[in-house]
Design a protein around this nucleic acid. Structure first.
Lengths: 204, 204
DNA sequence: ACCTGAACACCGTTCAAGT
DNA sequence: ACCTGAACACCGTTCAAGT
């Protein structure tokens, strides 16, 4: 009814516009089921069938949006960790903080990343995608051990514990806002100190 | 179309039947959005408007089902922990194992408990409900400290770390089945040993 | 008091048709 | 090649009506 531009130029810019619109709606709503096909196409200014020229179905659209946000999360943690090239303990801590900071600032965006029944592997041939963020975490733990600032133990298992805890904090703090949460930075310090034996905060 | 019993007896047995049907559908589907109002009423044998005689809307129905399952989860952990009245370490470990065992056996049922935007507090006047399960966990940690089998530290903070980690493991192991998960019992032992200093498995 | 029939405004998706 | 109009089978919810 309130459509604006009917004739679109050539090319598949529409595809990007649909992804952008879906990403914005997701960030606003914070809930996947409010991101409706009809709302996405209306935001762009086309009719529902146009979406199916570029995506198999709604799930495929959401899947690509999720992949984008995974990239943003991985970039945020990597960037934060790389600020401390000569201090493995600070790098590990900065990565965890950036992870939880990103989840706090993108509550809806974080939740969908792990919504159930998204069995499709997000791994891309170019290596970017889902799980190399975890590999980076393993690597950061290993560097701490080599530098002697972390206790011994299987780095994969330690990273799994850290990842589980930070994911738990990220989701529960959104789902249970009335719970008496301790200060998140303090929680992270305690987690890292107790799980991998990281010394208390030293700098920054 | 395929309705069976049209005339229902008096009383609000229908209310219980609707709750039972919704709980079963949720367990089967493992996804909240597959639990549809129309599927629930058809399973019971009534028409959609009948549901609104007993519940304000679909959200109210789901909320009551969630409250039921919270009760079941709390009962499972409490029962497991109470098997070890004279061994605080075994009680703490048994509670965490029961929590993750319940989540494993009720993947759909566990996920909905913490689905986002369920802001309504589940606390009931009678005290049963949401968060006394957490209080029990705090208490189990405190008993370990008193018995000298756990390190010092704020029990509330330690319980928060344990809860976050077990919640993270519970949700991620469902959302990421292809991740190389270590043995869950081993993961729990490592978690409790590293976070609260619980000694390695002693019995049972 | 309790339940139904019929309708409302939505939703994802498809298909023939337009340019 | 790209987009629309119109329809399909769903959904949650409401309202008048039946007994």
């Amino acid at each position: 009814m309130a459509r604006r531009r009917n004739a679109r130029g050539h090319g598949d810019r529409l595809r990007e516009e649909l992804l952008d619109a879906a990403e914005e709606l997701l960030a606003e709503a914070g809930d996947e089921r409010e991101v409706t096909v009809r709302a996405v196409v209306e935001k762009v200014g086309v009719t529902p069938p146009s979406l199916y020229l570029h995506f198999d179905d709604k799930a495929a659209l959401i899947r690509e949006v999720v992949a984008r946000r995974f990239g943003a999360l991985a970039a945020a943690t990597s960037t934060a960790a790389s600020q401390h090239p000569d201090d493995p303990a600070a790098a590990l801590r900065a990565g965890v903080r950036a992870y939880l900071g990103w989840a706090r600032d993108n509550p809806g965006g974080y939740a969908v990343l792990f919504s159930t029944h998204r069995e499709t592997q997000l791994l891309r041939p170019d290596g970017t995608g889902g799980s190399d963020a975890f590999d980076n975490l393993v690597e950061r733990v290993r560097r701490c051990q080599e530098a002697g600032v972390a206790r011994d133990g299987d780095p994969h298992l330690l990273a799994t514990l850290i990842w589980s805890a930070e994911h738990g904090i990220a989701t529960l703090s959104v789902a249970r806002p009335h719970f008496p949460w301790p200060d998140v930075d303090h929680l992270i310090d305690e987690l890292l100190q107790r799980v991998v034996g990281l010394p208390g905060r030293v700098s920054s």
